[in-house]
Structure formats: structure tokens, C-alpha cells
């Protein structure tokens, strides 16, 4: 294999998780903390940034340490690395974004058990060099992030008629014409249904992804 700083393989590491290997819609990883916080776009962005930070740092750290971690206790080592990084993020959010921290409540802590992070550490960072692990982590975190942002966009737009907490200019006319916000969108189950629809669209565009049953 030709060695280079940013070859085709490297490019695939980032682009695959964004589409055909998406952690949420294909690999079934990291759904737990993803859906409950998507009622507002702002929360989705904060969560995505937190996950990108934790994931990249954890992947690089584990990749640096990969030859020194005894196989039997690797899960605990991984958990501790991730937990310390998440504790850091939690404290930073509490200090600088107290409102967002309040709304996300336990879900920042739950990044620790976010299966994307553990899954990619286990499947990729334990066996690959630092640069590749960095790209893989970035790709997966972004793939997770865009689903989160997309779901939050629709839920906030249709559910409360705002985006990022701001009113949308044209909406006042709609309200006069009798348009009403769909309160169902704010409720937790709708997040699942929107992701289901995203999966539907994605799989009907790419038939190879369709499951047997």
C-alpha cells in the first residue's frame, strides 16, 4: 500500500461513517444518548461537539497506548480513559454553558457508555495507528453529529417553530393563517420515528443496505 499523509483510504475513513457506515443508521451504535436531547438544535450542537472532542481524544490516547494495554483489562482501561475525558467535558460545560449543561443533565455523563465511542475504540483504535484512529474517530463523530442535527432541526422547526431558539420571520404569517406547532414533535417518541424515516430514505437510495428481515 502506498504510504501517504492523506490517501484514498484515509478519505474513506472519514466519508464512510458519514453515509454507508453511519453509526446511528447502519452500525446501530450510540443511539442511547442521541435521541433524548434532540428537541432543540442548540443541544444537538453542544452534544455533537462534546462527542467529537471525547471521541477524538479517546481514540488517539488508546491508539498511543494500544501496545501497552493488557488484553484482559482493556475494557476497563478504555472506560476509564473515556470517563476522565467526559468528566472534563462535564466540568467545562458546567462552567461556561450552565444552561446547556442543565438541559443535557445526565446525558453528558452517558457519553461514557455511548456505544459509538467504545465500539470504535474496540474495533479500530486498538489496532491502528494514531493518525488513522484520529480520522476514524472524526468520521464517526461527524456521522453521529449530522443525524443528531438533522433530527433536532425537524423537531425544533415543526415542534416549536424556532431554530436555535430564535423565531423564524415568516412563521408569524403562518400562525395567522391558522398554522399550529405540532407538539407531538417535542415528545420523545418522535425522535425514533424521524430516525426511522431517515433510515428509510437512506436505504431506498442505496439498495445494498437493505436487510433480509
Amino acid at each position: 500500500m502506498k504510504k501517504g499523509f492523506f490517501t484514498k483510504q484515509h478519505q474513506k475513513l472519514i466519508s464512510d461513517p458519514m453515509s454507508d457506515q453511519n453509526p446511528i443508521t447502519i452500525q446501530v451504535l450510540g443511539i442511547c444518548s442521541a435521541l433524548a436531547i434532540t428537541t432543540q438544535l442548540q443541544n444537538a450542537f453542544v452534544m455533537t461537539l462534546a462527542v467529537i472532542f471525547v471521541m477524538i481524544s479517546a481514540s488517539m490516547l488508546i491508539s498511543i497506548l494500544r501496545n501497552h494495554i493488557p488484553n484482559r483489562i482493556r475494557i476497563i482501561v478504555q472506560l476509564l480513559v473515556v470517563a476522565s475525558l467526559v468528566a472534563l467535558v462535564d466540568q467545562i460545560l458546567k462552567a461556561f454553558l450552565p444552561d446547556a449543561s442543565e438541559q443535557l443533565s445526565v446525558f453528558i455523563g452517558l457519553i461514557i457508555t455511548n456505544c459509538i465511542i467504545m465500539g470504535r475504540l474496540e474495533a479500530f483504535a486498538m489496532g491502528n495507528k494514531v493518525w488513522e484512529s484520529f480520522l476514524d474517530a472524526l468520521g464517526n463523530a461527524l456521522g453521529y453529529g449530522w443525524i443528531l442535527v438533522a433530527v433536532a432541526f425537524f423537531r425544533e422547526l415543526l415542534g416549536s417553530g424556532k431554530l436555535m431558539g430564535y423565531e423564524i420571520p415568516g412563521f408569524s404569517y403562518l400562525y395567522e393563517m391558522g398554522y399550529m406547532n405540532n407538539n407531538l414533535m417535542i415528545l420523545p417518541p418522535m425522535a425514533l420515528i424521524i430516525v426511522g424515516l431517515i433510515i428509510w430514505i437512506q436505504r431506498s437510495r442505496n439498495n445494498e443496505l437493505i436487510e433480509e428481515n
Binding site: 443508521t25 447502519i26 446501530v28 415528545l187 420523545p188 417518541p189 418522535m190 425522535a191 425514533l192 420515528i193 430516525v195 426511522g196 424515516l197 433510515i199 428509510w200 430514505i201 437512506q202 436505504r203 431506498s204 439498495n207 443496505l209 437493505i210 436487510e211 433480509e212 428481515n213
Partner: peptide
């Protein structure tokens, strides 16, 4: 659900998400 005719792209994961959503509404 294996015996029912789910649209092909929804099979497996997709329909499970949607069913879970509907069950969530029921639980509310």
C-alpha cells in the same frame, strides 16, 4: 413482523425504530 410485508428499505432496523416510537406514544 417477519410474516408481514414491510417495505424493503424499512426492514430490520428502520421498522424497529418506528415501532419503538409508537410503543413510546402508547406508554405516554
Amino acid at each position: 413482523i417477519r410474516y408481514s410485508n414491510v417495505p424493503a428499505p424499512l426492514r430490520g432496523l428502520g421498522i424497529t425504530y418506528i415501532i419503538t416510537g409508537l410503543m413510546g406514544i402508547a406508554f405516554m
